[in-house]
Amino acid sequence: MKKVLITGITGMIGKHLAKLMHDQGYQVGGLSRATSATRYMSVKPFYKHYQGDIMDVKFLRMVWKEFQPDVVFHLAAQAYNGESWKAEDTTYQLNIQGSRNVFETCLEFSPNARIIPACSSAEYGIVPDEMLPIDEDKTPLKPLTPYGVSKAAMEMMARQFHLNYGLDIVLPRLFIHVGPDHPPVTALQNFARQVASIKLGLQEPVMKVGNLTSSRDFVDVRDGAKALILLAEKGISGEVYNICAGKDWTMQESLDILIKIAGIEVKVETDPALFRPSDEKVLLGKTDKIEKLGWKTEIPFEQTLADIYSNWVERLSK
């Protein structure tokens, strides 16, 4: 039985990935910070849990020596693009130095393991219209946000470990993964929380929003987790793969769908405080490369939004 270790296992992607791999017969282990203990409790039966921080090298060495993974999914990060403007030091330290700690530990204790670090579409930055959809092998990396910079640095470092030390690393560039049970720190989650609050009578029918003109290629986290497993099994070492839907939705379209799902009437007000210092106008990926391995999205975006909305109704009703 292969052993899979997931850093950031209590995050949105990590917990879906853990469940899928457990169901497929893998022995699963994972680590997360002590501050995520409440999220950990909901999935405790599925894996061996280690509570600690990837900034702590002594902790990482203890985990790797004990668990001896065959596959490592490195998902632990400051994972929010918008939040990185307010937490630049944390973003750089955790996503760059923390990732280096993970790679160094893999090199020392599991040099033959396959490593899947979560790279990001935020690495692309502003892409000219003539280069859309984004081809992972042709589009240059010009990150715009602190988060994007940190992920580009992490990916380049991972490639260095692959080229110089022979680590078996596959590089997925994750476009925006969305789904239930996520904090309201992204636009879609914030929209859904407000819409659910209005539906339940907890908020006046007025919504505060930021930039509604940008468009994003959204991936349901349940589809994304399957893509990560496929890369662990069939991805080519050293190669980069977009994990995306191949379709973009404007934030306005996403908001309209949520309002329609809830069956409410609202007044939408623009709040300058919700705008970022700068923003990518369009993020739209090309799916050809990963589809050749046998993956494609299965869950329609409208269903994802319905599930996110229902999840917020449930959370706010408790």
Rank of each mutant, 00 (worst) to 15 (best):
Y92K: 10
R114E: 02
A34H: 10
S99Y: 14
S42N: 14
E104P: 08
R39D: 14
C106T: 08
Y92W: 06
A87C: 07
V71E: 11
Q97N: 13
E66M: 06
A37Q: 13
Q97R: 15
A158M: 08
M157R: 06
V28I: 01
T35M: 02
A79T: 06
L132F: 03
Y40A: 14
Q78N: 10
Q68D: 09
A34D: 09
F161K: 04
F67S: 03
P140D: 08
E83M: 15
T145S: 14
G125M: 03
Y50R: 10
C119H: 03
R159C: 09
M154K: 04
R100E: 13
V28Q: 02
G29R: 04
W85F: 15
F67N: 03
A37T: 10
R33V: 14
I96S: 00
K86T: 11
L107P: 02
D129T: 11
A118M: 10
A113N: 00
S42K: 15
V127G: 10
G82C: 06
K58E: 12
G125K: 04
V57K: 15
W64P: 02
D56A: 07
G30I: 05
I134S: 04
Y124D: 05
K138I: 04
L107H: 11
K151E: 08
L60P: 11
N81K: 04
T145F: 00
V57C: 00
T145E: 10
K48Y: 00
D129A: 13
E88I: 12
K48E: 14
I126E: 15
P140V: 07
